[in-house]
Simulated assay, not measured.
Amino acid sequence: MNGRVHKPNIGQEIPMTQTLLRIDASARHENSTSRSLADRVAERLRPAKTITRDLSEEVIPQLDAGWLHAMSTETDARSPEQHDRMALSDQLISEVQEADTLLIAMPIYNFSVPASLKSWFDMIARAGITFRYTENGPVGLLEGKRVILVIASGGTEVGSDIDFATPWLRHMLNFMGITDVQVVRSDLQNLDPEAAKARAEGDLAALAA
């Protein structure tokens, strides 16, 4: 199920992260490094509420002419069909706005982000809602949030010249006002799995609580 809400048992200690939005973008479920690392991060954060979006179970539509036309139409002037077209985008944005921490778990596919995650970002990057244009350039409207990126790869080194995923993610988040971004990576697994595990453990240990 997508958009699920989980609440902890009564008596659980109140965590620093009140509402966690978890996004999983791996096509794999079993033996998924990004999912297993994200589980550990979520357990450490102990949020009071978790909203989950599993992009392998839900098809986020790509932008098309109809969606762009609906988006550019004033809300009060939209037709019922246009309101329907914007409903998912509105819901995804609402989840981001509610969360104080975002946990985005993904593999690097062909040096970049999974297409499903790109579509998710396309749905939430909306002028006037998550960012706005000013005389001095765009300004993000999602300030005060924290993002933890969990990134796994087989042959791409995170932060290298062939990593087009991590810089793009940081840029998109910064563009929408989110500058507190931490990375937990298990990269180059196909080249040296033990070293990849060690990097992940080091990043987890360094992760601010």
Rank of each mutant, 00 (worst) to 15 (best):
M106G: 09
T50D: 04
I151L: 14
G155W: 06
L21C: 03
I93R: 07
S36A: 11
A42L: 09
F175P: 10
L149N: 07
F121M: 00
Q82G: 07
L37G: 00
R146H: 07
A152I: 11
V183I: 12
L37T: 00
Q91F: 08
R132M: 05
G155D: 04
D161R: 09
N190P: 01
A27C: 15
L169W: 02
D39E: 15
L207K: 01
F131S: 13
M1I: 13
I10N: 15
E74P: 04
V139T: 02
S32K: 11
A27G: 14
V158Y: 04
S119M: 07
T73H: 02
A205Q: 08
Q97R: 10
L102S: 02
N110A: 05
M86W: 07
V96Y: 08
G159C: 07
L20D: 00
I178Y: 04
L142C: 11
S116F: 10
H83N: 15
A125D: 01
L21N: 02
Q12G: 03
N190V: 02
N190I: 03
Q82W: 06
Q189W: 12
D84W: 09
I93Q: 06
P114W: 14
L20P: 00
T33Q: 11
I108M: 12
R199M: 14
L103G: 05
K118G: 08
N174F: 07
R28M: 09
A27S: 15
A105N: 12
A200L: 01
T52C: 11
W67N: 11
A200K: 00
M176P: 03
A152G: 13
P80I: 02
D122F: 00
A200F: 00
R46M: 12
N190Y: 01
S34V: 09
R199Y: 14
S72K: 13
V183T: 08
P15T: 01
H29V: 04
K7Q: 14
P61Q: 11
A205M: 01
G3K: 04
T17N: 08
L169R: 05
A65E: 12
K145G: 01
V5D: 10
K49N: 13
M176E: 06
K49P: 12
H29I: 05
E157P: 06
Q97W: 03
G11S: 05
Q91N: 11
K145W: 00
S153M: 05
R44S: 15
F175C: 10
V181H: 04
A105S: 14
I10V: 15
E201L: 00
D76M: 05
G128Q: 01
V150H: 11
E57M: 14
A77S: 09
Q62P: 11
Q97V: 10
S32W: 10
E74K: 03
D187Q: 05
I108D: 09
M172C: 13
T50Y: 07
P8F: 00
Q12W: 02
G11K: 05
R4E: 13
E143A: 12
